[in-house]
Design a protein around this nucleic acid. Structure first.
Length: 440
RNA sequence: CGGGGCAUAGCGCAGUCUGGUAGCGCACCUGCUUUGGGAGCAGGGGGUCGCAAGUUCGAAUCUUGCUGCCCCGACCA
């Protein structure tokens, strides 16, 4: 993309409503625009990152065996009356009445809808296990939206729902998601710690929150330091095999959020392994048995001819929130530092003198070769001054910058800059391109 | 939902106390000079001062009501 033809409204000063660093940087980098409290328009740069995160989440869901569907954002109230949650959910649910006075709601989650889909089509234990997921905008009318995308009212969520015939199957389903989540966060450059959690209004007894440690986190968390360095399974992990050793490895160490914290158990840890920090919740998984299948009549025929309600679980990842979480975990004074996997562009090409024919030729060359190599470069071909270009490029945090100017070209070199470390090298254009395009 | 604060140009702000018809920086437009870490000079455009009533000869400024947004706390992907 040529910057001169792009839409990248960078701000020199952050709007005053933005308090935390990820919110400020997202607004300054022109990733999004607030339209209402907790409601945002996604601008090109932000949308690119959102889609990259979404793609990784999707890949790992698919890998684990979950099947993607897409459920509506507007749901009928009657389904929620069946589960009993229409009244239970309270003011957080945005309720709507259509022109025929039918009661609707903007979905805050989709247990009822997915259970309805399931009961319509699935009749036999032979069709299980099944895990259906979707990535859809949700709306929760938070009393106090804040921190930008970290606590918005409208947010993009991946929600998966597992259906099994018995508890053993439900546990396997839970383990699959557990491991899929570990892999997802790892690929996003995050260290997420599974912590035993309260189940809240969704219900059930087995539940974990996946937490990223960050000083701006909303809740106090406590865990064993060892958890920060545990190995996450690779792509070759067998989701049909026994995943319990992996899950046990993570769950056998102490980790709890504020409300589940056990001071005595925590104190039993050696002092140098006690981590007391703040955390951002980036995922939450639940196993809740027949809480929805029972009242909503989602039953299957068993081998002996009897009918039984299915055992369910639900598994959420806040996709839009992850953008904020990643920035909180990866930035410096100059701006965002994207992990390669989610960077909106793979590299930036900065022309220091767009009116210089040799510089332009070299930039065009770099731009074409990086594009051909699939690096999706952003080429700053604008007439802005060098300092402004450097500042903007640092702000938007692309992993690599190739800086091309007349002085360097006279010596046959360009500047290759690594955003994460700030390291700069003077190398030939060819080797700069080679470095950027080489496999990690 | 309790407590606090803010609302003036795209963004950041001054002006409000003490009423006299709106200003600064950045951004934007034109020209010239510049160009390796947010350029300089000259000229220019843009605001029903959140909305509505009221007080007054006169309201950004005073009064009342409303709306929006932010922060702290309790709750949540």
């Amino acid at each position: 993309m040529r910057l001169s033809r792009y839409f990248l409204p960078i701000l020199k000063e952050a709007p005053k409503e933005a308090e935390i660093v990820s919110h400020r940087l997202m607004l300054r980098a022109g990733m999004m625009r607030q339209q209402n409290a907790g409601i945002y328009s996604w601008l090109p740069l932000g949308l690119k990152v959102l889609k990259k995160i979404e793609a990784i989440v999707r890949e790992e869901q698919d890998r684990s065996g979950a099947v993607e569907i897409l459920m509506p954002s507007i749901q009928p109230a009657d389904l929620w009356r069946e589960s009993g949650r229409y009244d239970a959910y309270g003011k957080e649910m945005l309720r709507i009445v259509d022109r025929h006075e039918r009661e609707m709601l903007y979905g805050p989650t989709a247990e009822e809808v997915v259970t309805d889909i399931f009961r319509t089509y699935v009749r036999s234990y032979r069709d299980l296990p099944l895990n259906l997921y979707n990535i859809q905008w949700k709306f929760r009318d938070e009393v106090r939206p804040r921190f930008g995308v970290m606590r918005g009212r409208e947010f993009l969520m991946k929600d998966a729902y597992s259906f099994d015939v018995d508890q053993a199957g439900a546990l396997r389903a839970y383990h699959k998601m557990f491991v899929a989540y570990l892999r997802t966060y790892k690929r996003l450059g995050l260290t997420a710690i599974p912590m035993r959690a309260d189940t809240g209004p969704i219900g059930g007894k087995l539940s974990h929150e996946f937490i990223i440690l960050a000083s701006t986190g909303e809740s106090a968390v406590f865990c064993d330091k060892d958890l920060l360095d545990l190995p996450v399974p690779g792509e070759d992990v067998d989701f049909d095999g026994d995943l319990s050793p992996v899950v046990d490895m993570f769950t056998s160490r102490y980790a709890a959020t504020d409300e589940m914290h056990d001071e005595a158990a925590f104190a039993a840890l050696p002092e140098d392994r006690r981590v007391s920090a703040r955390g951002i919740e980036v995922g939450h998984i639940f196993s809740f048995g027949t809480k929805y299948s029972e009242p909503m009549g989602a039953k299957v025929a068993m081998a002996d001819g009897s009918e039984q309600p299915v055992i369910m679980g639900s598994y959420g990842i806040g996709v839009s929130r992850l953008i904020g979480a990643i920035i909180e975990a990866s930035h410096d004074d100059a701006g965002i530092i994207w992990p390669e996997s989610v960077a909106p562009f793979g590299a930036g090409v900065i022309s220091l003198r767009p009116d210089d024919a040799a510089v332009t030729a070299a930039c065009e060359d770099a731009y074409a070769k990086l594009a051909a190599a699939g690096k999706d470069p952003l080429y700053d071909d604008t007439a802005a001054r060098p300092g402004a270009k450097f500042a903007s490029m640092d702000l938007i945090g692309l992993p690599w910058q190739i800086i091309i100017g007349p002085k360097g070209l006279a010596d046959g070199v360009v500047e290759l800059k690594r955003r994460a470390t700030g390291d700069k090298e003077l190398v030939s254009l060819e080797s700069a391109i080679a470095r950027v395009t080489e496999k990690a």
